[in-house]
Amino acid sequence: METFVCAGCGRIYLEKSERCVHCGSDMEERPASGRGIVYSFSSVHMGAQGMPTPYLLVLVELEEGGRILARLADDDESEPSIGGKVIFSGLSDTGPVFRML
């Protein structure tokens, strides 16, 4: 898993950009294991426009530090829990996707 970390505010991105869209500082490439733990999660039943429900949102704390909001893979039927281990499985139209380990 490749991440890009802002040298200024520490924000983590999964896609490369010139500068941090949050604070404008330079970005540094940082390889990540893709492993993390569930910091919180919510199953969304009434969703955003054009997004079929239900889907599971997970706020993931990465092993290397920092958190990102992601989806749990649609075909992952395991019951998430706070502190549960997850691994990055790729980027979709709706951003990062993780699986429970």
Binding site: F41, V44, M51
Partner: peptide, 18 residues
Amino acid sequence: EASVGSTFPALFGLIARR
């Protein structure tokens, strides 16, 4: 956030769970 599918109830759902 919104691009991942978070709505305001979802953000507060995450907050409430934590």
